[in-house]
Amino acid sequence: MSDGDDGLDPESIEVELFVRAMQLRHGYDFSGYAPASLKRRVRQLALRLESGSISALTGRLLHEPTLLPQLLEGLSVPVSDMFRDPAVFRVLREQVLPVLASYPHINIWQAGCANGEEVYSLAILLEEAGLYARSRIYATDLSAGALQRAEEGIYSTREARQWSRNYQAAGGKHSLADYYSARYDLLKLDRRLRRNVTFAQHNLVSDKVFCEAQLVLCRNVLIYFSNPLQDRCLQLFGESLVRGGFLCLGMRESIDAASSARHFKSIDAGLRLYQRNPDAIATMRPPAP
């Protein structure tokens, strides 16, 4: 922005080299991530792993293969809440699930499930709507560590009161506490809630569609992606969704400028709920070799 006779600052160069090394060494491509947040995360990783500098972290990335899980975790979407933005879950409950109920089998893709808070929120919604027995939730994330935590379903009780309020505001029929057992400062969600959940590693940057879904949830994940990668993901979601299938994004996301947004029509603009248009979507060409 400021006119650049002073060139790229050293830290930006360090981040670029880190991203390049990540791709060459481990095959993970973060070049499509939005730079401002990526830089923050890489900076924090360097601090957390006591590497001294981003360049030093890049050195470790190259020579310590066991570091990879920690790196992926630090670079992918970290936290969520149960029933975050209750209004969204209320609309899912009241408007989307009744439509899904008309399908004999319901497939839901939760893309970027992080530690799983929304997976369990969704399972509770389906359970209370009497639909869970014929539903399958595909919960995917880039980070194996996050997937493992999602599968365990153990969280700190610190946020439990807020989550209960969210659940009630989302139209919950019982008490959220009916779905977990608490011990000391941890709560563990009822394992029955994940009986129809498939947890799987999936990279939105490079992987393809793997299921036909009636609903795709991907909330506050694309905010970390630059415009071309955001567009790719919307294309991917369009390909995955059945005609008339639903897409739910984070409440402050904007997709208007993305060309793949043409595959969707807005159902509730404020809540970022969309429905796939009926016209056919050409499958994405495989990336050039």
Binding site: M1, S2, E11, S12, S37, K39, R40, P78, N220
Partner: peptide, 27 residues
């Protein structure tokens, strides 16, 4: 750009985050 990264100084939005990013851009 927006992020839902953890709170900074108990805050989200955090002033530190905004100022830091803006400083990198506008110097």
């Amino acid at each position: 750009a927006l992020s839902t990264d953890p709170r900074v100084s108990h805050s989200r939005p955090s002033i530190d985050v905004l100022f830091g990013a803006a400083a990198d851009v506008w110097r």
